[in-house]
């Protein structure tokens, strides 16, 4: 009877495959953990040295970074022109929920502008592209 060593030959590629799958899985998990430290500060404000860069935006400016408004709450005088800087790759808007102001779509890397209402008050706003993005404009 002839027995062919097929088992050995056939087990090789699958062993290599399995090892590589494990390696890649490990890599992806490691990358995911590194780029998103649990309990750590906002992800992409970190310098290579590990120091946290706190963006202090100029007055009357809303910066959009990593799908968040900075500062989340901005106080301005009535009728102020507010510059909106989109530092993301994705487009965003600054749109009052009562539609009293709307920047329109600001593409990634571009700037836009909104004019604060003349009536004092608290104006919540969202991004119409990503409605879970929320900010507040206080006019006083």
């Amino acid at each position: 009877m002839l027995t062919q060593p097929t088992t050995i030959v056939r087990s090789r590629p699958s062993t290599i495959l399995f090892t590589m799958l494990l390696a890649v899985l490990g890599l992806v998990v490691a990358c995911g953990t590194a780029s998103n430290p649990s309990g750590g500060p906002a992800t992409s404000g970190n310098t290579p040295g590990g120091a946290v860069v706190t963006t202090t935006p100029a007055a009357n400016t809303i910066v959009i970074k990593n799908f968040a408004y900075v500062p989340p709450s901005l106080t301005v005088a009535p009728g102020t022109k507010i510059t909106v800087i989109n530092e993301d790759k994705a487009p965003h808007t600054v749109t009052a929920t009562d539609h009293s102001f709307d920047s329109g779509t600001i593409e990634g890397g571009q700037r836009g502008e909104v004019t604060a209402p003349t009536t004092p008050g608290t104006y919540p706003y969202i991004c119409t592209v990503h409605p879970y993005m929320k900010g507040t404009l206080i006019v006083q």
């Binding site: 992806v28 780029s35 998103n36 993301d88 879970y132």
Partner: peptide, 15 residues
């Protein structure tokens, strides 16, 4: 596809 999803993932954690 794998790269783009990993790169964008943290932006969409709030959703």
């Amino acid at each position: 596809d794998a790269y783009a999803h990993l790169d964008l993932a943290s932006r969409f954690d709030a959703n």
